[in-house]
């Protein structure tokens, strides 16, 4: 299997996402998320080098500054403030969920094979499988964790997966759209962060599984 530099970065990012599942420590989770996002930013920059698309450099820079740097810092600041260091974990033990994720990582290669390829658009199936794998890792992270901060991390991993998919399966999403998406994401994380503070203040915990007053 011959991998190009962006593909290698993206696959490594997907693996890092799998590793994120293995630890219940928020600091470890956030650190691994930052590494994952840096890898994705790198892949974007390499992609820019390959296709000669200047916009990709801008996007890589934006991802690096905001998603890989500001967001994890913000979230770890929250977890410091709330003195939440460890997730409780839900029905799936952390090691098992990591191994499950790895198996899904392999299955995503099979899934990605189903994706039609247009050589004109420079599709790569390892890239697509990295995207699918990231998406699934994020979903499992959201399902297997109970702390609000971990939910946000899971959401961000899903978003990374979708971005990866876009990066490898399309060529050149309009810059405006990309920036809008990134902005929306940042605002969503900020809003979620503020809500987490409020949840801590009102409930004295940030365990989402215990928020079930409202139901039919």
């Amino acid at each position: 299997m011959n991998l190009s530099a962006p593909e290698l970065c993206l696959l490594m990012a997907a693996l890092v996402a799998c590793l994120t599942l293995g630890s219940l420590h928020l600091s470890v989770n956030l650190g691994l998320f930052a590494i994952e996002t840096v890898l994705i930013a790198l892949a974007t920059a390499f992609m820019g080098g390959i296709t000669g698309d200047r916009e990709l450099y801008v996007i890589a820079l934006l991802i690096f500054c905001f998603k890989a740097f500001t967001v994890p810092l913000f979230l770890s600041w929250i977890s410091d403030k709330l003195m939440a260091q460890r997730d409780i974990g839900s029905f799936l033990p952390a090691p098992l969920s990591m191994h499950l994720c790895l198996i899904l990582f392999v299955l995503s290669f099979a899934l990605a094979k189903e994706i039609p390829v247009s050589h004109a658009a420079g599709h790569s199936w390892p890239g697509a499988s990295a995207g699918i794998s990231l998406l699934l890792s994020g979903l499992i992270l959201m399902l297997a964790r109970r702390l609000a901060i971990s939910q946000v991390v899971g959401f961000l991993v899903i978003e990374n997966g979708i971005y990866t998919f876009a990066l490898t399966q399309t060529r050149g999403m309009p810059l405006m759209v990309e920036m809008g998406i990134l902005l929306d994401l940042l605002v969503a994380v900020m809003v979620a962060g503020l809500l987490i503070f409020k949840i801590q203040k009102n409930f004295e915990h940030i365990d989402i599984a215990q928020l079930k007053d409202l139901r039919d």
Binding site: L19, G22, L24, A94, P95, M98, H99, L102
Partner: peptide
Amino acid sequence: EFVAYIVTVSLI
């Protein structure tokens, strides 16, 4: 947890 990471590396 530590051992799980070793198994993960092996799985990879």
